[in-house]
Nucleic acid binder design. Sequence first.
DNA 1: CGTTCACTTGATTGGATTCAATGCCCGTGG
DNA 2: CCACGGGCATTGAATCCAATCAAGTGAACG
Lengths: 209, 209
Amino acid sequence: MHLLSIAIPGASPVPRRLRASTKHNQFLEPRQTLSIEPSAELLTVESGCLALSHYLPDGRRQISDIVGPGRVFSIGADCRAESLTYSSVMPVDMPSDAYVSQGRLMLARMQAHALLLGRKTAAERVATAVLDLARQFAPRDRPSRPSRATFILYPTRADLADWLGLTIETISRTLNAFKRTGLIAFDRPERITILNQPALERAAGGTTP
Amino acid sequence: MHLLSIAIPGASPVPRRLRASTKHNQFLEPRQTLSIEPSAELLTVESGCLALSHYLPDGRRQISDIVGPGRVFSIGADCRAESLTYSSVMPVDMPSDAYVSQGRLMLARMQAHALLLGRKTAAERVATAVLDLARQFAPRDRPSRPSRATFILYPTRADLADWLGLTIETISRTLNAFKRTGLIAFDRPERITILNQPALERAAGGTTP
DNA sequence: CGTTCACTTGATTGGATTCAATGCCCGTGG
DNA sequence: CCACGGGCATTGAATCCAATCAAGTGAACG
């Protein structure tokens, strides 16, 4: 992980699993798994990036969502939340209408993702993912959508593969194909710049997240 | 559709689209699309079977869930509900805790389905689907799970394909393979009997819905 | 009685996986 | 300082699972 060179004194060799604190903020370093007792039902991401994942008995993994700042999520029985970078999460008590609307958002995202997993080609999946991650992680100076955004791609190729139902190699090939075609640019694997958003959206199969 | 031979006088050539009635029950014949104004946010299936589906601009379809009696669902922006047989749905006003738990159920189902779509093989998907549909549509004389259940498979091969992210042919081949192996039986394509549930569950990849 | 629609089955193709090798960055320790 | 090893990414070649293409069957229906 060379995304951030923040020095955290003596933080490297700690247990990789964490219990939800009784009350407030929760700070995570990269690749920590959040295991929560149902005390805190709803959590919000203050900063950083989490992956919500599910496993088959034999180890196959499916990431159901990548969650960025401002997003609300909850983790239940067979759902794990893992930080993809230094992150901070916080329990939230919501007014019930906000609760409902957040639930709707989660559902809508999951349905869109099912459409992606069930019916989109590899290129369409990767394009969709890049646009989604740009929306979540590109700095938005203006309320408008960033048309030439650079952002940090927190998920690794392996994470993307497990999110999009593909393999590491296919992710790499597709991203580099997009680079060759001039849709995106990157020198380091995790700093992505969108060069041609309309074309990317077309490549995504016509559904903007 | 030869699932039921109920005669509905002069019902065949009617408009295929229906508005939600102001108040109570809503009766649907096979292959009717339910389009709802947000008046009735939450609906429950009294009888029959519905498919919730999403489309890409070019017509590719993904069914996100197959909903049977007792289930609660809602349809939003780009989500369509289509009856797969004679069905009856009803708006529900829920106490907020029930609302929350139903939302959780939907989310959990969608996450399990994402795992299926992203990481399971064709055989695992079909096995999972058969078990899920048996749970929803097999008559449950006892509170226990039916270990030798016969049930009506309301979705066609095409519906199953669009639900499981496969093609009609793969669905057909896989079901017939299960039949040859003695996991299930069927003479008519839509009357399925589970002969060996443990083996089916193993074939499903180890996650029981 | 011909048409249609859903399903089945076989032959072939193809997109993504798998297998395999290499490069790169970085932290570690001799 | 530099050799070493591990993790992640890239790239090429071979393989395979499911898609596509192509008939053929059978039940329902006008």
